[in-house]
């Protein structure tokens, strides 16, 4: 089969229009990273088995490695690059950094996208609800505990509470 022609489409990514030419069989992950230069979204297994390529489409977290870019045209795509509020970090990013909830950091963009969608629907999730929400995002470094704790603290801060990580979380048990 001969290679099909590129198509020219305008995407809305993080509230900004991006006009891009790409082959119609390309995934959203490929177009985000390779055509738009938005490399915050990571590529991992590319088979739907790891969650690191998670982005939000119309607010719903999905795997960009399994979405055709053409199917995201006309929709509101949000990536980790769109999380920061002006020059400040999003509360989730802030706590992830404070707590060391990111170690190698490769899963972090996907985890942040999934957790952000959870907190939009539920401002005080239980530990179990956080676990369920992140059940599609693999992390091979942290053992997840710091991630769960970071989401809890970020949720509390977003509710206006002055939540801080415990000393043990930062320095370990004495």
């Amino acid at each position: 089969m001969s290679e099909p022609n590129k198509v020219l489409e305008t995407f809305s990514v993080n509230g900004e229009p991006h006009e891009v030419a790409f082959l119609p069989h390309k995934t959203l992950l490929e177009v985000l990273r390779e055509e738009m230069g938005l490399t915050g979204t990571k590529h991992g297994c590319e088979l739907g088995e790891c969650g690191t390529c998670t982005v939000q489409i119309d607010g719903t977290p999905v795997l960009s490695c399994l979405v055709l870019a053409v199917d995201a045209v006309g929709k509101d795509v949000r990536t980790v690059e769109g999380m920061a509020c002006g020059s400040g970090l999003h509360p989730l990013q802030d706590v992830f950094a404070d707590l060391g909830a990111a170690q190698c950091g490769y899963c972090t963009p996907g985890v942040l996208m999934a957790a952000d969608a959870l907190l939009r629907d539920n401002n005080s999730p239980t530990r179990e609800e956080i676990k369920q929400c992140l059940a599609g995002n693999l992390c091979r470094c942290t053992g997840y505990l710091k991630i769960f704790e970071a989401v809890e603290i970020a949720a509390a801060r977003m509710r206006g509470e002055d939540a801080q990580p415990s000393e043990e979380s930062i320095y370990g048990a004495r």
Binding site: G48, G51, T60, V62, L63, A114, Q132, G136, N137
Partner: peptide
């Protein structure tokens, strides 16, 4: 079935 992300899709 699978994971929440895959069930969204």
């Amino acid at each position: 079935i699978s994971t929440p992300l895959l069930r969204n899709m």
